[in-house]
Amino acid sequence: MSSTTSVRGAAARSLLFAPLLAAALALGTLGAPPSSPGTARATTTENSTAAGPVTIRTQPIAVSWSTRQLAVRIAAAQKGDPYRWGAAGPSAFDCSGLVYYVYKTRIGRYIPRTADAQRRASIWLAKSSKQAGDLIFFMSGGRAYHVGIYAGSGRIWHAPRPGQRVQLSTIWTSAYVVGRVR
């Protein structure tokens, strides 16, 4: 057998596998949530029989369990610090300022400054999937008006309002959504 024949045979075999690979990629990405922010596009070769480009959705990378545990410890260390509107630490906080201080200033993860912007930048989770270190966003009219860091057992660390201090409180309403810092 000549080397030309073996090269042609390999090329023919790879053309046979291209549609199968494209189909496998398409089937493997059907379960990806539509809200996943990252996408990658894989295109097929001119000679393949696939219908068109395949879109592969990537999952955002969330903070690890140990990072979320650290976030809870950092938030707990702020217990008793006063509420001050617009403050983001280190000695006074508003609700989103506490979250910003814990995740951005101390841990180094990107998170916006306001509660609703933090909600939009988070990975959304089912309430049943919340874990310590996740963010609890209290909602009204489709917007987050308050945020706290979930401590577990139905409680959050938060800076409640003027005249109060950073404290551990029981979640007081069912009108909340859960987010995880990316």
Rank of each mutant, 00 (worst) to 15 (best):
residue 1 M to S: 10
residue 2 S to V: 04
residue 6 S to C: 00
residue 6 S to G: 00
residue 11 A to E: 12
residue 11 A to M: 08
residue 15 L to I: 14
residue 17 F to D: 13
residue 20 L to K: 14
residue 21 L to H: 08
residue 24 A to E: 15
residue 28 G to K: 06
residue 28 G to W: 01
residue 28 G to H: 04
residue 30 L to F: 07
residue 32 A to N: 06
residue 33 P to Q: 12
residue 34 P to K: 11
residue 34 P to L: 10
residue 45 T to F: 13
residue 48 S to C: 08
residue 54 V to P: 02
residue 57 R to L: 06
residue 61 I to W: 08
residue 62 A to I: 13
residue 63 V to E: 05
residue 66 S to D: 11
residue 69 Q to D: 13
residue 71 A to D: 08
residue 73 R to L: 09
residue 73 R to M: 09
residue 77 A to R: 12
residue 80 G to E: 11
residue 80 G to V: 07
residue 83 Y to D: 07
residue 83 Y to G: 06
residue 87 A to N: 02
residue 92 A to Y: 01
residue 94 D to R: 00
residue 97 G to V: 04
residue 97 G to N: 00
residue 101 Y to K: 01
residue 105 T to K: 00
residue 106 R to D: 06
residue 107 I to W: 00
residue 108 G to M: 05
residue 114 T to D: 14
residue 118 Q to P: 08
residue 121 A to K: 00
residue 121 A to V: 04
residue 123 I to L: 12
residue 124 W to K: 04
residue 129 S to G: 00
residue 130 K to Q: 12
residue 132 A to H: 06
residue 132 A to E: 03
residue 134 D to Q: 01
residue 135 L to I: 07
residue 138 F to W: 03
residue 142 G to P: 07
residue 144 A to M: 00
residue 145 Y to S: 11
residue 147 V to Y: 03
residue 158 H to P: 06
residue 159 A to V: 07
residue 161 R to A: 14
residue 163 G to A: 10
residue 164 Q to P: 04
residue 167 Q to D: 03
residue 169 S to L: 05
residue 173 T to I: 05
residue 177 V to S: 06
residue 177 V to L: 07
residue 181 V to T: 15
